[in-house]
């Protein structure tokens, strides 16, 4: 995944390593910290595969800079990646999901209490993200990322509500 994010950023314009790291962190709202070694490791791999080309730019007072740009092959590879939709973001291997499943096995009281507390925690996260999105000066990619996160948490809250309802129905039909 890192590979294509970097190709996308080099598609915008040729960049040197530090510049690439800066725009990468901007794109993801600072949520995916990369050290410069990781950036250069990724760039060498891309260069080896012929997806990017490296030019040495001579500078006077400071050391020379390596500037990377997208090759024709890299351009094609980026387009190919963008033409295919990504895997839908469905992850059910969450701690929250597991806890609810197990609490439902363990018994009524523990699951009821767990759902209440899980909801409060999720609401707090949702409140934080909604507030972050309402900032006027966030860049577009961060806003899109926040939208995705907000919808995800809303989905979690709906799921918790559904769990509560289904478990209550089961409990009352057993009585």
């Amino acid at each position: 995944m890192l590979k294509y994010l970097l190709l996308g950023l080099l598609h915008q314009q040729p960049r040197h390593g530090y510049d690439l790291r800066r725009v990468f962190e901007e794109l993801l709202g600072g949520t995916w910290p990369l050290n410069i070694a990781q950036v250069y490791t990724a760039l060498s791999a891309l260069e080896r595969d012929g997806l990017v080309v490296c030019d040495i730019v001579r500078q006077d007072a400071v050391p020379d800079r390596k500037v990377y740009s997208l090759s024709e092959v890299g351009e094609k590879e980026l387009r190919r990646w963008l033409e295919e939709p990504g895997r839908p973001l469905v992850q059910l291997r969450d701690e929250m999901v597991h806890k609810v499943l197990v609490a439902a096995l363990v018994g009524d009281d523990s699951v009821t209490q767990l759902i209440v507390e899980q909801r409060e925690l999720t609401m707090r996260s949702l409140a934080e993200l909604v507030q972050a999105r309402d900032d006027d000066d966030i860049p577009v990619p961060t806003e899109l990322l926040l939208d995705a996160a907000i919808l995800r948490l809303e989905g979690d809250l709906k799921w918790l509500e559904l769990c509560e309802r289904r478990l209550a129905r089961r409990a009352s039909s057993r009585r």
Binding site: Q91, E120, M123, E128, Q131, A132
Partner: peptide, 28 residues
């Protein structure tokens, strides 16, 4: 059934978002 404060801080928002982004990046 519940009554909770919703404290709001920018740092917390960033951490929450980071957690969500990291957990999807780890899948690869």
């Amino acid at each position: 059934v519940s009554d909770a404060d919703l404290p709001k801080s920018r740092d917390a928002a960033r951490r929450t978002l980071a957690r969500l982004v990291q957990s999807s990046a780890d899948e690869d």
